[in-house]
Amino acid sequence: MKQKNLRIIFFGLVLCMIVPFLLSAAGEKEAVEKERAPFDIAVFVPGVTAGSPLYEQMANGTKKAVEEYENASVKILEAGFNQAEWQEKMTSLAATMEYELIVTSNPAMPFIIAEVAKDFPDQKFLNLDAYYKGLPALHTVLYNQVEQAYFAGYMAGLVTTSNMKGANADLKVGMIVAQEYPALTKMMKPGYIKGFSAVNDKITLDYRVIGNWYDATKASDLANSMFDEGVDIILTIAGGAGQGVINASKERGKYVLYFDDNVYHLAPGTIVGCSILRQEKLAQEKIKAAIEGKLEYGTAQIVDTRAGYVDWAGDDPLYVENVPEEIRKKMDDIVKKIKSKEIKLEVPEL
């Protein structure tokens, strides 16, 4: 027993010995730290960049903007998939006090930022793909995802009523999502419904929730059961799990609509439509504004199709090749009508 205790103490001593040694090494480093550029930006990725297009776009846009300025620099920080750790990591990032601006993207982040700002009110934040008002150091930009979803919905309506090979007589369209969150329930789902209802108001929606962003197997099971019930086209908003929907559709000869990114090449002929966001462009512009001191913190902005940040990927060769001309024409019309605000789709209170 005694010996064991001593061992514990010894263990503690080892720790204590390492620490001061390293701290002394730290002193020498201080000089290097001082020469940093005047506008440092941190990109906080709530997840990992690889494989998630919106985050990739955010990172690239930021990098491009930074390249234009001598005095700017960027650091990308990936927080990993465990949501429980995001707040701590964001706080730590703010606590470094090294960055003029922290950029992030995800509708969940404003709430975390609000918590962080309590301790670090001076830290500036830019949050893309989110809507939050009333935090003086935060600027948010929200996409009009009603419009984005409307494109997908309209396309779904056109396909299910068409005589394309995979389409059937049932007036049913599908939607598979990873989880429910306000942007989804208040913008995307209603936009989608409005879209296909505009084609034919008898079309019904088969809507399923996976419960996470990675379970492709479950997603594929859900897709199959929807096809069994007569669905012929599915909009997937499920991150990595979306691959399961694509696989199932390919096997069954059905169709998939994709969100946020242009991914026709993943399954030409199966993916028949992509409602995209131009996050790279947005990021680049916003960062430039920030560096030049023109970003209005404390405000929330909404950007839409007309401004050029929401769009329908209608000129991709794989789209042109696989979608009948008649349908493509109708889609082009709709995009025009939305752009010109002939069809008005307002973003609701989130």
Partner: peptide, 8 residues
């Protein structure tokens, strides 16, 4: 699940 929260 809290639908008003964007996290799971």
């Amino acid at each position: 699940d809290d639908p008003s929260n964007n996290l799971l």
